[in-house]
């Protein structure tokens, strides 16, 4: 046990040295242009949403939120039996993950206005990326640094971002095919106005 601890400590020391070397190298590489610091993009955070980035509200179906309008424990009683829904929400055909998956794996049974992580933690719909990130860790990591998904705004400043569910309908997340805009005109049919002046 003590042995293992020592190894870990020395490994950490090694990383520190490596890190210092990297810093030095970076300093050298960007030294000449360093007279004026390049504008910085916001640094990615460790947990949750990327810093300084506005994420728009979740794309709810109109009139459906808050869910506790009906799921208040009285109007609609909690029923934790896996079943095919017939009275309500029968438009949802779940095409996401294994067949055994169902509503209450993600929606919190006690508080329907919240989502539920595997750990049991309740989260707001506006932080649904945490839920998606449980399985899609690689995508989540890329999303946080701005590589997966779409960002708009400023490359060196304020950005807007989208939630996973803005592009991927959570009940059937595969990106839907769309109609392409028209192809370019073939060069042989390109015709300017004859004798037209600039």
């Amino acid at each position: 046990m003590a042995d293992r601890k020592r190894t870990a400590a020395s490994a950490a020391g090694g990383f520190a040295v490596l890190g210092a070397a990297c810093l030095l190298a970076t300093g050298l590489a960007f030294g000449p242009s360093g007279a004026q610091e390049p504008p910085k993009a916001p640094a990615p955070q460790d947990e949750g949403a990327p810093q300084d980035i506005q994420v728009p509200a979740p794309p709810f179906t109109e009139g459906i939120f808050p869910c506790t309008q009906c799921h208040d424990g009285k109007t609609v009683k909690l029923n934790t039996t896996r079943r095919k829904l017939v009275d309500m929400h029968d438009d949802i055909v779940l095409q996401h993950g294994p067949a055994s998956r169902w509503c209450l794996d993600c929606h919190d049974p006690q508080d329907r206005d919240k989502l539920r992580l595997a750990s049991g933690e309740r989260i707001e719909f506006s932080r649904s990326y945490l839920l998606c990130g449980q399985c899609h860790g690689d995508k989540f990591r890329d999303w946080r640094v701005g590589v997966h998904g779409k960002r708009t705004g400023e490359w060196n400043g304020k950005k807007q971002y989208l939630l996973c569910v803005h592009c991927h309908y959570p009940h059937a997340p595969h990106f839907k095919p769309i109609k392409p805009l028209p192809p370019p005109v073939r060069p042989e049919t390109l015709r300017g106005e004859k004798g037209a002046q600039p």
Partner: peptide, 13 residues
């Protein structure tokens, strides 16, 4: 689809 990415090559972040 978020295919396109742009930024400053001199900014390590």
């Amino acid at each position: 689809t978020g295919t396109r990415k742009f930024g400053n090559l001199l900014d390590p972040q």
